[in-house]
């Protein structure tokens, strides 16, 4: 890929990184990353991926920007309240880096449309705020053999992992076979969340996405990271494939996508 003077200037501080160069920058320009949710996790992730020059970013969210989102969803600004989050997000990303193509999906993502959407992307970042979507995204990534970089937050805690069962690692269901019963996990609305915690996990998702695209460093596949902001601790747990996983195990019981019914209380809060 030929770089313009402006592109060299824009990306110079990462192009000089070891083993990055023009080849790394070209890989980013050719990459397409799908981000589920333009909220607390999707916001910082999308900003850093766009800033780094990821060629295509898909942004899916059917919600509109509300005032109480702004405490953590940094893609959106006060004048954006009332806009569709994907429109507001696209505007912010375009002003940060006009080179990035932002594809927006303002429809609800369901079993009926997800496979057709994610097939055009090489990586999926999950920043969704509810378990039905979280399981749908995991199952769709498994069926489409897409690498899934999963983040979750609540209160002062965050979690991060990468799932790529097509490369031998576990999937989300290897850890959590089924969604928890409705009402057993509190929502942000009930439990609250520190905005900066969303930032920490969303940025780690972006960092892992860049590493996966560039093929550098150690993947988070097979590792599960737990973050607590109050104690400022990161704890890493090794995870492996579950032979009795209902999706990717030896005798899978799940062979098609499932639209779980959303509980009235969303269980977590991207």
């Amino acid at each position: 890929m030929k770089f313009s003077e402006e592109q060299i200037h824009r990306y110079s501080r990462q192009m000089i990184l070891p083993r990055f160069g023009g080849r790394g920058q070209s890989k980013l320009a050719e990459a397409a990353v799908f981000i589920m949710g333009a909220g607390g996790l999707g916001s910082p992730a999308a900003l850093y991926l766009a800033a780094a020059g990821v060629g295509t970013i898909g942004l899916a969210d059917f919600d509109r920007v509300e005032l109480h989102n702004l405490q953590r969803q940094i893609l959106h600004r006060t004048p954006d309240v009332g806009l569709l989050k994907v429109e507001s997000g696209k505007k912010t990303l375009a002003s940060l880096n006009p080179e990035v193509k932002v594809q927006i999906y303002s429809e609800r993502i369901t079993a009926a449309n997800i496979l057709g959407i994610i097939k055009d992307y090489q990586l999926v970042l999950d920043g969704s705020d509810n378990f039905p979507t979280r399981f749908l995204v995991n199952d769709a990534c498994y069926f489409e053999k897409k690498t899934l970089i999963s983040g979750a937050i609540l209160r002062f805690d965050g979690q991060l992992s990468t799932f790529k069962p097509h490369a031998g690692g576990p999937c989300y269901r290897c850890l959590f076979p089924q969604p928890p019963p409705p009402g057993t996990v509190p929502s942000c609305q009930e439990a609250g969340v520190l905005g900066a915690v969303a930032g920490v996990i969303g940025i780690l998702q972006a960092s892992e996405a860049l590493k996966e695209i560039l093929g550098i460093g150690d993947s988070m596949a097979g590792r599960f990271l737990l973050f607590n902001a109050l104690s400022l601790t990161f704890q890493e747990v090794k995870i492996s494939r579950n032979p009795s996983c209902p999706l990717c195990g030896e005798k899978p019981s799940i062979r098609t996508l499932i639209d779980y019914r959303p509980s009235c209380q969303p269980p977590s809060c991207a």
């Binding site: 770089f3 060299i8 200037h9 110079s12 000089i16 160069g21 023009g22 080849r23």
Partner: peptide, 13 residues
Amino acid sequence: CPYTFIESMLALE
């Protein structure tokens, strides 16, 4: 710098 290095590297690539 760092454009001297970057442009050299791009040429070598």
